[in-house]
Amino acid sequence: MVKKGSAAGCRTTRAWRSDDAGGAGRLGPVPHHARLAERFTVLAPTLPGIGASVLPEWVNGVRDIAKVLLAALDGGGIGNCILGGVSMGGWIAAEMASMEPGRFAGLVLTGSQGTATGEMNTPDLFLMPYRRYISFGYNDARSAAFQDLWSGELDDDAVTQDLEVMELAALLGFKPYMHDRSLLPALARFTNPALLLWGANDVITPRTVAERFLDALPAAELVTIGDAGHYAHLEKPVEFADAVTGFGAVLKAD
């Protein structure tokens, strides 16, 4: 979630939970947040079900999570902002944009899930260890960008966090696997500018997926980041943040 910064004192990164009670996100502040915060107020929600962020009992899919997040935006009086999401977060953002297209000045999707690849060789989050799946999301899993965040021995807290993420992912995307047939048709409602910011070497949601979003969104452009995989925001945070900043600069967001 990116709000174009205007008021003094807003140029900070703060974690934002759906119940808006503060607290750190899944990975805590990561480099692209800091860079975006030089220009914008950045709200990075910790999704319901992760950490202290409560998962309502009735949530049973991405659309339900989208409802929770939209309600939280209502509660915070937040609108006319740029909405963004990566991977499953991209799917959630796309749902939110299709449900309340007027609320968001722009949409940024990166490696967005939500459409089926239908390929046996696409890494399936539920058929491999979590961190092995994450490694497929990097162009270079030997790089410091991956090693710093994802390698090393796991203590019980880290295992718990991984389990939380996997359980939420299973709730939202076990079956059908990471997609909803109604998503792309519904995106026709989102007529504001959209940026599809994709890792050039994404093997989890390959370029064909980005092209489907490109076709579905009335005012979208596709920009790729070189030497980046599915998690382009973590692997190339500067390039990622600068592309979002460039996109946001021309929008009339608050």
């Binding site: 539920f126 058929l127 491999m128 260890p129 979590y130 092995r132 019980d156 295992v159 718990t160 389990l163 939380e164 996997m166 359980e167 992912a169 299973a170 076990f174």
Partner: peptide, 23 residues
């Protein structure tokens, strides 16, 4: 086969406590 362990313990199949204990 690096994925086999994950086939035996997919998300939610056992409680978090049990998953940690099993690990």
């Amino acid at each position: 086969h690096p994925d086999v362990g994950a086939w035996m313990a997919p998300p939610g199949y056992v409680s978090r406590e049990a998953a940690i204990a099993r690990r």
